[in-house]
Every structure is written in structure tokens, then in C-alpha cells.
């Protein structure tokens, strides 16, 4: 009898231990995602305020040099023009790079405006209904944003969709985002799909991602993220 009681107590203790460890792991996973997001934000800022400013100043210097150059020196003019073109390309690349890390509009204006900008620039027509009228935690905003990004890319590239609907709304302390397209379906979370990384990111935030994509029946992605 005494042995059985001791066993039950020991069992209880072990279970409590496992629960505590699980909670710890969950918290540290969420922290990792949050820190990574802060880091992205800082990187984006450094690119804009550091490298980009310098390149723009350089463009200005080249341009002023060009004005002092003798018109008859066609070889030097051609070289300078080439340099200016390369610099413009570098600036454009830098802008794309910074946007891929964390778009400034997401940091500055939040999820709603950032989704608007995505829809505006999408390779397929997007109908957007975003009812997110407040700022959410950085990690939630960026997980949702990049999920929509990925879904739009898939819709255009693999699903050959002709239209996409994006919805985002707050509901009872949760952000719910849906992306549906009329493409060929057959999308999967595994493999090389960019969705895999998102699943990890979203579950680290205690959220859920579901994907429905029957062959020939379009694709529907749904995300739910707590953001009390």
C-alpha cells in the first residue's frame, strides 16, 4: 500500500515536472521568435539609415562630378553613366532586401497598411478586407504579414490563380487571417515550401495554421494568432 502511494506521488511529481518544462520550452521558443523579429527590425533600419543614405550621397557626388566633366570626354562620360546605372541598381536591390527583412510600412504603420501595400503590388488581383485597427505585437504582425506574402507568391507562381481574397480581422483576442485563391490547388506544407518555416514561427507564437488545397479546388490558408 505504502509502495503504491509513493508511486502515485512520484508520478504526480514527474508530471508536474514535465508540464513545467514544456511551459519553459514554449516560452523560450516564443522569446526566440520575438528576439529574431527585433533583430530584423534593427537590420532593416540599419540598411535604410546607413547603407542607403551613403549610396544616395554617392549618387549625388557622381552626378555633380558629371556636371563638371568636359562634354568632349565621351569615354569618361560613358564610364560615369555606367557607374550611375550600377548605383541605381544597387539602391533598388537594397530597397528590396530591406523590404524582405521587414518592410518599413509594417513597422511604421502596422498590419493593415502593410497588407494594403502587398495587395497593391501583388502579381494577381487581390481583394482585401483588413479590419485590424490597432497595432499588434511585432512578432504577430510579421508572422501574419509573411504568411500572406508566401500565400500570394504561391497563388501566382504555382497555383496559377486569377484572383485572391485576403481577410484579416481581430476576434476575441485573436488575429485571424485567411488567404483564398481560385488556382489549381495541391499545395503542401512540407518539402521546399516556404510555408514550413511559417508553421514553426506561428506555432512558436502559440498560433495555428491550416492549409486546404485539394487538387483542382483552389487553396485556402488560415492562420490564427493570439494577441491579447
Amino acid at each position: 500500500m505504502a509502495g503504491a502511494a509513493a508511486l502515485a506521488i512520484e508520478n504526480e511529481r514527474l508530471q508536474a515536472d514535465v508540464r513545467a518544462r514544456l511551459a519553459e520550452v514554449r516560452e523560450s521558443r516564443a522569446r526566440l521568435v520575438t528576439v529574431a523579429d527585433q533583430e530584423r527590425r534593427r537590420l532593416e533600419r540599419d540598411l535604410h539609415d546607413g547603407a542607403q543614405q551613403r549610396l544616395v550621397a554617392l549618387a549625388l557626388t557622381l552626378s555633380r562630378a558629371g556636371e563638371r566633366l568636359d562634354d568632349r570626354d565621351t569615354a569618361a562620360r560613358a564610364l560615369l553613366a555606367d557607374g550611375e546605372r550600377q548605383l541605381q541598381r544597387a539602391l533598388a536591390e537594397l530597397r528590396r532586401l530591406a523590404a524582405g527583412i521587414r518592410p518599413a510600412i509594417l513597422s511604421d504603420a502596422g498590419l493593415g497598411p502593410a497588407l494594403e501595400s502587398l495587395a497593391e503590388n501583388a502579381p494577381v488581383p487581390v481583394t482585401l478586407s483588413a479590419e485590424v485597427d490597432r497595432r499588434l505585437p511585432d512578432s504577430v504582425e510579421s508572422a501574419a504579414y509573411f504568411a500572406v506574402c508566401e500565400a500570394l507568391t504561391n497563388a501566382a507562381k504555382h497555383a496559377h490563380a486569377t484572383r485572391v481574397t485576403v481577410t484579416a480581422a481581430l476576434d476575441d483576442g485573436h488575429l485571424r487571417v485567411g488567404v483564398g485563391d481560385d488556382g489549381v490547388g495541391g499545395a503542401q506544407l512540407g518539402g521546399g515550401s516556404g510555408l514550413r518555416g511559417l508553421v514553426d514561427r506561428i506555432s512558436a507564437l502559440d498560433g495555428r495554421l491550416t492549409l486546404e488545397s485539394p487538387a483542382g479546388g483552389g487553396t485556402r490558408l488560415e492562420i490564427e494568432l493570439p494577441c491579447a
Partner: peptide, 8 residues
């Protein structure tokens, strides 16, 4: 756009 500054 700021990039435009290069084109005086």
C-alpha cells in the same frame, strides 16, 4: 524617392 537625388 530618395534614390532620385542622384539625378540632379
Amino acid at each position: 524617392l530618395k534614390d532620385r537625388v542622384g539625378d540632379v
